[in-house]
């Protein structure tokens, strides 16, 4: 019995490989196009960030943080953190990582939020995509790194795709949560005054779900940031590269500095993205 079982192996892996081969042979132009667009997006954004003089950009970041949050402590922290990163010599890598994170988040929002809305309106759709979302979050990243590498080639694009696969479940889930938790009374109020489906979406559902969707986007940014080292493995530029290099050459100093820069960037992004407490809830 055991021998029979081992001798008749189901060729799951082969099937998937054949499927990827099929995609590369027949759909290469499609993937090249996607690669071109996404590559252009990241490249352009990185170039834009690096075009501005670092000190000016740091000042701009601090100003934006002040305008959004009106907190002196936060502004001082951001100035200190970014100046430290510049001092350590990781300014360019930090901007490349920031660019990757933003592009990944952008793709996640553009794709994920509409999927979340559609899923909230159609329970069967959510039942259908939930296992896929679970799969995307639990399957080891390296596993889908290989096919993305084959399909999109080395560089920032496979890194971006892998990052999107890993992070997109967050905005989908939280958009679904936000939209499906709109109180029935608010739907009724909208309908009773003659709202169309589109008006219901934009004037009732989305405003109500906005805090939850924002939480999803913040989560998405954090998840994307946690992928920078993995993205570096397939050739994406950024703070992941020095970490990988440090690992290969057992360079404790470089590993520590680059790791610190990632942590600093994570904290800055988290604090800036957190929703300001604008409206107090009364009990």
């Amino acid at each position: 019995m055991y021998d029979w079982l081992t001798e008749h192996k189901i060729p799951l892996g082969i099937w998937l490989r054949d499927f990827v081969d099929l995609l590369t042979t027949h759909g290469q132009s499609v993937f090249d196009f996607i690669s071109l667009v996404l590559g252009g997006l990241i490249g352009g954004f990185t170039a834009a960030l690096l075009w501005v003089p670092p000190l000016l950009l740091i000042a701009i970041f601090a100003l934006v943080a002040w305008l959004v949050h009106r907190s002196v402590g936060l502004v001082v922290f951001i100035l200190g953190a970014l100046l430290l990163v510049t001092n350590l010599g990781y300014w360019q890598a930090t901007m490349e990582t920031l660019s990757l994170v933003f592009c990944a988040t952008f793709v996640c929002v553009v794709v994920g939020v509409p999927i979340g809305i559609a899923a909230a309106h159609r329970p069967w759709l959510y039942t259908g995509i939930r296992p896929i979302l679970d799969l995307m979050q639990t399957i080891p990243t390296f596993v889908y790194l290989i096919p993305t590498l084959v399909l999109f080639g080395l560089g920032a694009v496979p890194g971006l795709i892998s990052t999107v696969i890993f992070s997109i479940p967050a905005p989908i889930r939280l958009t679904h949560l936000g939209i499906s938790s709109v109180p029935p009374a608010l739907y009724e109020a909208g309908k009773a005054f003659g709202a169309t489906k589109t008006q219901l979406l934009f004037k009732v559902e989305l405003p109500h779900a906005l805090p939850t969707i924002m939480a999803g986007i913040t989560q998405c940014i954090m998840l994307s940031l946690s992928m920078v080292v993995i993205a570096a493995l397939v050739g994406a530029d950024g703070l992941g590269k020095p970490v990988v290099r440090a690992l290969n050459s057992v360079n404790i100093a470089m590993g520590f500095e680059a790791g610190l820069a990632i942590v600093v960037l994570a904290i800055v992004l988290d604090r800036v993205c957190k929703r300001p407490e604008r409206r107090s809830r009364k009990g």
Binding site: A185, E188, A189, A192, K203
Partner: peptide
């Protein structure tokens, strides 16, 4: 037009 028990305000 309609007025709701739990107000239904946005």
């Amino acid at each position: 037009s309609m007025v709701f028990q739990q107000f239904g305000l946005l």
